[in-house]
């Protein structure tokens, strides 16, 4: 499903420019920008022909053929996606079209960011083409800002708590986040608050293998099981859970055997680990004995074999549950050594 929002917000750019650039990794923003540009051209000429192409696997000459003047006149919009992946011949062709724009032909070049195909973008920029940036929405802060912008777009407001709760529940996917926002806009009246978000999205938690491992390594068996179930339900691969557990335990073992007084930064350098991991391991260490860590690693190694199909007919989810419980209990009950 492709939810591009209720009304494409009219960009401040001139949709009738001969070339428009849509640059950035965030697909949702890119598809909105494309829709807005095409809508702008249609506004000027309802009979506009719209062509959508992918630059990969395109034959040289195909774009020029579409851009050739038609007997009946009228505007033509050509959306070319993945121009970063275009073969050399296609790039040359696009460069030609940028250098000699045809009347009533509008090229929309979509590039997913990164260094590939840079020269083409630079050429387009030099010709004065307007550009719509589509930056990645990655950190939680970006996502909260995104949610707030979504509500602003619909001329509604949202409480900070509600935005936070939405990101917690659906943060893994920007499209889902956008869909949930428009759903909330349609279903609620007035300012959207925590209760509204809770009504529709309660109990859903995005969990990764690392979240499961962190809970297990701090001995919170119940929370670890809960997160494991969530993680599996949202499609985290079982091997990611075992590898997160393994790397967590590995760090614990390394940091645990170091002398107590060493500064985190120095220890991090000595062990070739990022300092924040060393700090995390130091917080997790109380309650662990070397024997306990050893026992837990052995259990995880067995589980890794099980989730990869050893022990025919095994159930990965069950193997993981047992492992998480065993790891959590290895922490508290491990014999001193």
């Amino acid at each position: 499903m492709l939810d591009t929002g209720p009304v494409p917000s009219a960009p401040s750019l001139d949709p009738l420019a001969p070339v428009t650039l849509v640059v950035g990794p965030e697909e949702l923003l890119a598809s909105r920008a494309i829709a807005a540009t095409v809508a702008g051209i249609r506004l000027a000429d309802p009979g506009t022909q719209v062509h959508r192409l992918r630059a990969t696997g395109l034959e040289v000459g195909a774009i020029s053929a579409l851009a050739a003047p038609s007997l009946f006149g009228g505007h033509v919009a050509i959306v070319v996606e993945e121009v970063g992946e275009a073969a050399a011949g296609i790039v040359d062709e696009l460069r030609g079209l940028i250098a000699q724009p045809a009347d009533e032909v509008h090229l929309v070049l979509v590039h997913s960011g990164g260094a590939r195909g840079r020269p083409l973008l630079d050429a387009a920029r030099a010709s004065g083409a307007p550009e719509v940036p589509c930056p990645a929405v990655k950190s939680d802060r970006d996502k909260i800002a995104f949610v707030e912008a979504e509500f602003r777009r619909a001329h509604r407001s949202v409480t900070p708590g509600a935005a936070r709760a939405l990101v917690d529940a659906l943060g893994a996917n920007v499209r889902e986040l956008a869909a949930a926002c428009s759903q909330l806009v349609a279903d609620c009246e007035g300012r959207v608050d925590d209760t509204a978000v809770e009504r529709y999205h309660r109990g859903r938690v995005e969990a990764s293998g690392f979240d499961v491992a962190d809970a297990a390594l701090t001995g919170q068996a119940e929370r670890a099981l809960l997160l494991l179930r969530h993680a599996l339900a949202v499609g985290v691969a079982p091997v990611l859970v075992t590898s997160a557990l393994a790397s967590g335990l590995r760090t614990l073992a390394k940091v645990g055997s170091a002398r107590g007084g060493t500064k985190s930064v120095d220890l991090a350098r000595e062990l070739a680990l990022p300092p924040f991991l060393v700090d995390k391991a130091r917080r997790q260490l109380p309650g662990w004995t070397p024997g306990g860590i050893a026992a837990a690693i052995t259990v995880v190694a067995t589980a890794d074999a099980e989730v990869k199909g050893a022990g025919a007919g095994g159930d990965p989810a069950y193997a993981l549950e047992r492992t998480v419980l065993a790891v959590a209990s290895a922490r508290s009950t491990s014999p001193p050594r």
Partner: peptide, 22 residues
């Protein structure tokens, strides 16, 4: 056997070295 059945080599070797020790 674990490495042959695709277990992450580092993890398999860790479990082994721990067993060699205890």
């Amino acid at each position: 056997a674990a490495i042959a059945s695709n277990v992450a080599p580092l993890l398999a070797v860790e479990a082994m070295v721990l067993a060699l020790r205890t």
